[in-house]
Design a protein around this nucleic acid. Sequence first.
DNA 1: ATGGTTGACATTCAA
Length: 257
Amino acid sequence: MKIASWNVNSLNVRLPHLEQWLRDAAPDVVGLQETKLEDAKFPDTALAGFGYRSVFHGQKTYNGVAILARERAIEDVQAGIPGFEDDQKRVIAATVGDVRIVNLYVVNGQDVGTDKYAYKLRWLDAVHAWLADELQRHPKLVVLGDFNIAPDARDVHDPEVWNEAHILTSTAERDALRRLQALGLHDAFRLHSDEAGVFSWWDYRQAAFRRNLGLRIDLTLVSDALRPRAAASGIDREPRTWDRPSDHAPAWVTLAG
DNA sequence: ATGGTTGACATTCAA
């Protein structure tokens, strides 16, 4: 079972890329972020034509998440973090086969010390409390998405710039990610590689992709129960080379069985 | 310190 995460930065613009990548990569389950589409405009019919069912939770202009699944039912759909008031559509969870999928579009946070940064940390606290509970109900859990946090120095092109005081790498953000991982959620990519310089996001500016000035902020976390089944994990750079790309590349994990 | 690019929407905001 191949499970992937992709921040498409507007599904309206990126639908042709998504179709091509679904064909190339043939994932079984996909979590999308930044669809930027209200639910009435979600292209579920087009996706069904590519062989994927979909559930979605979106809004106009900003945010928006979805889960797609090929040849499988998508059950017990949860939109948003239970009990956490949020105008921003950043979370959808569902069960596919024997695996619970939680798809997160984590708050960016703008800059350390801003209101948006405070919201990011509050939001991550709410996610932590929810996932602790979710793991009790669903031990076979995959938490994936655009985390907007680079786990450590190997995951940034320049650790001196992306340091403990910088957004996406600050101490409080990394601590919040570590607290999620301490629930028993493992960065699938790091189960198989200690390589530095493998990124999932490159700024549109300053030819960052060509120069590989990126960050690894798109993650697939697998629970303790799924860890033995995590056979491989990687990032598909190719869609980032296509014309008019998303600034993010798809990240994936394969589960045996 | 600023601006560099993209997307959505309407001229500036968010990333």
